[in-house]
Amino acid sequence: MNLFLQQLINGLNVGSIYALIAIGYTMVYGIIKLINFAHGEIMMFGAYFAFIAATSYNMPVWAIFLTSMIIMAILGVAIEFIAYRPLRNAPRLSALITAIGVSIFLQNLALLIFKADPKVMPKLFPEKIFYLGGIEISSTTLITVGLAIVFMILLDLYIRKTKQGRAMRAVSEDKDAAILMGINVNRTISLTFALGSALGALGGVLYSVAYIQVFPTMGVMPGLKAFIAAVLGGIGIVPGAMLGGFIIGMVETMTKAYISTTWADAIVFAILIIVLLFKPTGILGKNTREKV
């Protein structure tokens, strides 16, 4: 029972990181119907900037997070502006290939700048372990889950309550109608990339703290899993991404603990496939019927 609770905590830890990254995928998909393959690399660069801020500039923890998130927000907006905007009316697959191109580019840029060997991420949070009826919870885990939840609530409030948030929903619902309503679509899309990338960077920093490592290809697997999480929850739906993130994190942790470490990823994929076969648009997805 204790082991199970311990794993539950671990799953929550990993899941909250996946959820943060998944939000970026889902927001971008919701608004421009693009699978932003470069999002995993956003996460990776976010981790590198945090690493630099922590080791070279000795910044306080809050400043490390803020710097990384702001820089990545800017980078996210820049990527959209340079690589995706010219393709907005092109076939969707062309935009997808561009996103793949950006992903390969960023990965190799990181390889060139930071080299392939993993860097050790310093401990950003005071190390303390809490004991709760036989289970251990580290301060890092607490802060990770806490930060993730706080930012998700903030994002949810932002999307639901503010004018810009409403604009985002309007654009993802119907771009042409949004233009007619006087919404600045370009700015709204930029804002979406900024928010998604900032949360991706947050996820990246937390991921690197959890696994104590930073390296150029670190974004690939968590990126893929976060994307799966977004699809599982129903892509384009923000709460779906959060739910999907926690589910994937939980499933992964539990299979590693109870079934097999080597098969864990296969099981994660198998669950995704089974869910999609029964619910083709994800857990929270709406089934839209094509009008005839």
Partner: peptide
């Protein structure tokens, strides 16, 4: 791979239909 990916992006921007 930097050059490869850049070519890919440029190609798609200027000739999205392949």
């Amino acid at each position: 791979l930097l050059i490869y990916s850049l070519l890919l992006i440029i190609m798609m921007i200027f000739r999205p239909q392949g």
